[in-house]
Amino acid sequence: MMLEIHEAAKHFGGVRAVDGLSFSMNEGEVVGLLGPNGSGKTTLMNLVSGALKPTSGDILFDGVAIGGKRPDVIARAGVARTFQLVRVLPSLSILENVMVPAAFGREALWGRAAEARAEESLARVGLKVSPGKLAGDLTYIDQKRLELARALAARPRLLLLDEWLAGLNPTELQEGIALIRQLEAEGLTILLVEHIMDAVRALCPRCVVMASGSKIADGPTAEVLDQPEVVAAYLGGIDA
């Protein structure tokens, strides 16, 4: 198992954002994480990436406990992510943005090697803007591309995508789906939060569905989406 989540919980005061949730992922698997708004998907991503410490429960990556570890330690172990609200480094150039995980990740590349890795990642996501430009000046879609390139620059083994496809127009969405498919074909393990059902059906053979911090379904996508609990959870809940 590449990722094992055992009874993970995260409480914010009285709010049980993640409430004793368990599931596992194999290497090379692409799993969709679904659920209505506020069901705890982002919080779960935060627990895996180290942005938040679990209140209780265990998270294992490659058999090693990472729950509660610092995000930089988890990043160097081979986990990379994008953020639901896109976060580029606005005062750094595009190239510098992408160099960062290459420089501070597992491989600790520097100089020409880090630049080469950044260029390669930018090419992979199809960002065709002068790499010397400041990241803060990019359009929204290009910022999203940049964030993905940055996540890929560390050559992660597990990629966490939090609504990376949200806010794209239909053409961009098709490009985005093709891009993630490409990563899937290369054997990358991906956990992705997504509201766009066409994208989920196209990309995720398997889905985990959350509601109020708990897992209510887990299995092959077509079956899961037909389950009455899932349909009920989504009625009135979903915004997409």
Partner: peptide, 21 residues
């Protein structure tokens, strides 16, 4: 390297930490 790390921290500490800094 530490100069790049500082620039990143100046912009966004969360991103810095998630990049391995």
């Amino acid at each position: 390297r530490i100069g790049l790390a500082l620039k990143v921290i100046g912009d966004d500490e969360t991103v810095a930490a998630h990049a391995g800094i």
